[in-house]
Design a protein around this nucleic acid. Structure first.
Length: 571
RNA sequence: CGGAGCGUGGCGCAGCUUGGUAGCGCACUUGACUGGGGGUCAAGAGGUCGCCGGUUCAAAUCCGGCCGCUCCGACCA
């Protein structure tokens, strides 16, 4: 059935609500597609829900093509399940909690690794049951500290989450590749350009993960890219080159008076030396332990790398009081004389020679500090924050660039991080109990919808990619109350539906300008205008949303012309 | 969680500094005219000014507390 705008639930707005910032958020609101209920909680009006279902169907097809079976797991789960892996604690306040009538603690699941692993251990017995790949379309609940950007970051959302179980690493690689390929297919079919980047696996866990990023200025992630070699990584884990190991001969340490130079910038200027010839001290509380991090003066510490390197749960900068308590002199600190067990050093300071560092005395610095001779660290590891302009670690001569991006999907190599604590062992061919190698793969549907709109709009409104448009054709009936127009509209609706095209008919008693503007705003790929003027000659006008000019066609032929026009869009 | 801002008919906003019982544009209803890119005229409907408390003869306006929403950052998928 064609949808008639005169009867549609919801309405378009001339002005976007002031809360909306980004183009996609404004357009989704103005086109009457979404309505906000609370921070990060939205309703989806008929056209938006149609598009969301199309996205879902594309994903479903690609998941099935990748060998995954659709299932459905509960959103409401007993807290005990989460205690098995300790994620009731690691997820912290993001986890929505409630109690049932018997006071049993429950959670609204933010993701389903525990649930699927539980399913697996209850059903799979041996390697003969592998490989397994499953997925679901399911509502997730996450009490985000800061929902933002309309649908970009919400607290309740539909996620396609897939999980895989393989007998060994080699088998897992095949699954992972199939999933990565499916993901690329999905974004291509949805009309959103993405780049796959190396990422941190965060609260999901596992060794390594890749994100599928839509590069856009409204994004909330910083993405590091090398235009020379194509290296791409989230800034949270991006690597970069620190230059060659210095061959310079170590010079004798000498103390210099440097009054009032408590920052690297001030120090370098005072001494007339480049910042990269200094060693910077940064103090963090890592799982409750004061930690002394050292890095080259021109670089910054990446806290996430610090946490991962030390196998810690959390880290934050020390407060000035805590620094003093630890016996360190802010602004004049160096690792000289500090217990190496407390020190973690970036390779940038280890491989350099004759650096300037603090004298651990107010107002003085030391010249010619050298790792190994003057100080040492229990841990030497990459803890640097990759920044724009840094040399690429993957190719010679490349310079890293930085762009903002939205994470549209994330695929993880989980290994045994869930199977082990949940004891999901199975028997291998030799009759030994082994743990399956797991992977998980997620896409947020609403966020994807937002990205589709962000990537496909102009000043007038949305320009839906045909595959995910809520309607194929937008019929603009001018003078809809006239008999000949009403009759033509009904006929065209029938013809289009017979041709397999969905349509939204604007039969409202509105001025033509209002209807054209709403058609542009809602953004169906093809618009067909019918009115008394054209119908005198038995003609209607067809215009693609993405093109400026339309053309006329006979009413009787309009449906097949429409079919051809839409087919030309998808190639 | 740190920083900033905003809550006044459905949407966008003014009014608040200097207290006196709420206004503009759009949207909505009815009628007439109009009719191919956001019409015109006329008549209407719709607001406990986020909530609670205080000051005052009188509070949208001043004071206190709370709640909600947005943005930047932290964090996060």
């Amino acid at each position: 059935m064609a949808t008639r705008m005169s009867a549609m639930f919801g309405r378009t707005l001339r002005e976007a609500p002031g809360d909306a910032d980004s183009a996609n958020h404004q357009l989704l609101l103005r086109a009457g597609l979404i309505v906000q209920l609370a921070a990060g909680v939205y309703s989806f009006m008929p056209p938006a829900w149609r598009s969301l279902r199309k996205l879902e169907q594309i994903i479903r097809e690609e998941m099935e093509a990748a060998g995954a079976q659709e299932i459905r797991m509960p959103a409401m789960q007993p807290l005990e399940l989460w205690q098995e892996t300790g994620r009731d604690r690691s997820y912290g306040p993001v986890l929505f909690r409630l109690r049932d009538r018997r006071e049993r603690p429950m959670v609204l699941a933010p993701t389903h690794e525990e649930a699927v692993t539980d399913l697996f251990r209850k059903t799979a017995q041996s390697y003969r049951d592998l490989p397994q790949r499953v997925f679901q379309m399911q509502t997730k609940f996450r009490d985000e500290p800061r929902p933002r950007g309309g649908l970009i970051r919400v607290r309740e959302f539909i996620m396609k989450d897939a999980y895989s179980f393989d007998i060994d690493e080699q088998a897992f690689q095949r699954t992972y590749s199939a999933m990565a390929e499916a993901y690329h297919n999905i974004y291509r079919r949805c009309g959103v350009p993405v780049v796959a980047v190396q990422a941190d696996s965060g609260a999901i866990g596992g060794k390594q993960s890749e994100e599928f990023i839509f590069l856009t200025e409204i994004g909330e992630d910083n993405i590091v890219l090398c235009p020379s070699c194509g290296y791409a990584a989230n800034q949270e884990r991006a690597e970069f080159d620190r230059g060659a190991v210095s061959e310079a001969a170590p010079l004798a340490v000498e103390e210099v008076a440097t009054p009032g130079t408590t920052t690297i910038e001030a120090l370098a200027e005072f001494l007339g030396v480049p910042q990269e010839t200094t060693a910077k001290a940064a103090f963090f509380l890592v799982d409750g332990e004061p930690t002394f991090a050292v890095i080259r003066g021109d670089l910054e510490v990446n806290e996430l790398k610090l946490i991962n390197t030390l196998g810690a749960q959390e880290a934050r900068p020390l407060t000035p009081d805590e620094v003093a308590e630890a016996g360190w002199i802010a602004g004049y600190a160096s690792p000289v004389g500090v217990d190496p067990a407390r020190v973690i050093a970036d390779p940038s300071v280890v491989q350099a020679r004759n650096l300037v560092g603090g004298a651990n005395r107010e107002g003085f610095h030391l010249r010619h500090l050298n790792y190994g001779r003057d100080w040492s660290a229990a841990t030497v590891a990459d803890i640097g924050l990759a920044q724009a302009g840094a040399p690429c670690a993957a190719c010679p001569g490349g310079r890293l660039e930085m762009q903002r991006g939205v994470e549209l999907g994330h695929i993880f190599r989980l290994g045994e991080v869930y199977a082990a604590p949940m004891d999901a062992a199975i028997l291998n061919a030799d009759g030994e109990r082994v743990l399956p190698v797991m992977g998980c793969y997620g896409i947020g549907l609403e966020r994807l919808l937002a990205a589709v709109v962000q990537a496909n709009h102009d000043a007038q409104g949305i320009v839906w990619p045909p595959a995910v448009a809520p309607y194929d054709v937008h019929l603009v009936a001018i003078g809809a109350d006239r008999e000949e127009v009403a009759a033509a509209l009904e006929r065209l609706e029938r013809d289009l539906e017979a041709a397999g095209l969905s349509c939204l008919s604007d039969d409202r008693d509105e001025r033509p300008g209002v209807k054209f503007n709403d058609a542009d705003l809602i953004g169906a790929p093809l618009r067909i205008t019918l009115g008394p003027r054209g119908l005198r000659d038995g003609e209607v006008e067809l215009k693609l949303r993405a093109e400026a000019e339309g053309r006329n066609a006979a009413l009787e032929a309009a449906a097949s012309v429409a079919q051809d026009a839409l087919a030309s869009l998808t190639g």
